[in-house]
């Protein structure tokens, strides 16, 4: 039930922000269309903690801040490598272990890996990710396992 309400509220807020017209008729139209959307989602049975992770909404912003810092640092590294005349890259595939318990945590971890330039998740096999790294240093950064630990902590605190 919590997820249904959260989905409805999010949809309605998005509607209000995107429409930009604030008259009674439009408020009513918004309520109707949001209700239809929630109804369809209920019929499809796609509203659960995985598609709508309400339990993460309080702690996720802190993780995002940390992730953004990582993204900026990784960007500078990749930029240096691309612009250097000798092109100092050493692309390679390697496996990394994920300690997350459920699929949601794994998705967050895999997407975080891909989002930081220099590493791309290519395949997921159980709790092992196949990762393509641009250079040795980005590979080493990932293998320290800090990102993995933070995502697992995210999962554990919910």
């Amino acid at each position: 039930m919590r997820h249904v309400i959260a989905l409805g509220v999010t949809l309605y807020v998005t509607w209000l922000l995107l429409s930009g017209v604030y008259q009674t008729l439009w408020f009513v139209l918004g309520v109707i269309s949001c209700a239809i959307c929630v109804g369809i989602a209920l019929r499809m049975e796609v509203i659960d903690r995985e598609t709508y992770p309400v339990h993460l909404s309080m702690i996720l912003p802190r993780y995002w801040l940390w992730l953004f810092k990582e993204i900026v640092l990784a960007n500078f590294d990749v930029t240096k490598r691309i612009l250097a005349p000798s092109l100092p890259v050493n692309p390679q595939l390697f496996r990394v272990k994920a300690t997350q318990r459920d699929d949601l945590g794994k998705v967050i971890y895999a997407n975080s890996i891909t989002l930081t330039p220099g590493t791309v998740t290519v395949d997921i096999d159980g709790d092992e990710f196949l990762v393509h790294a641009l250079s040795d240093s980005t590979k080493d950064d990932l293998e320290t396992g800090e990102m993995d630990r933070r995502v697992t902590a995210l999962e554990g605190s919910s």
Binding site: T79, L87, P91, L115, P117, G118, V120, L134
Partner: peptide, 29 residues
């Protein structure tokens, strides 16, 4: 600047997997 760097990476890097990192610079920062 970063968008240009991503585009240059798209041209310079050796194969699809490596070019993906270049496109990543454009897409994120």
């Amino acid at each position: 600047f970063f968008i240009l760097v991503g585009a240059i990476g798209l041209i310079r890097l050796p194969d699809v997997f490596a070019r993906m990192h270049g496109a990543g610079v454009t897409d994120t920062l």
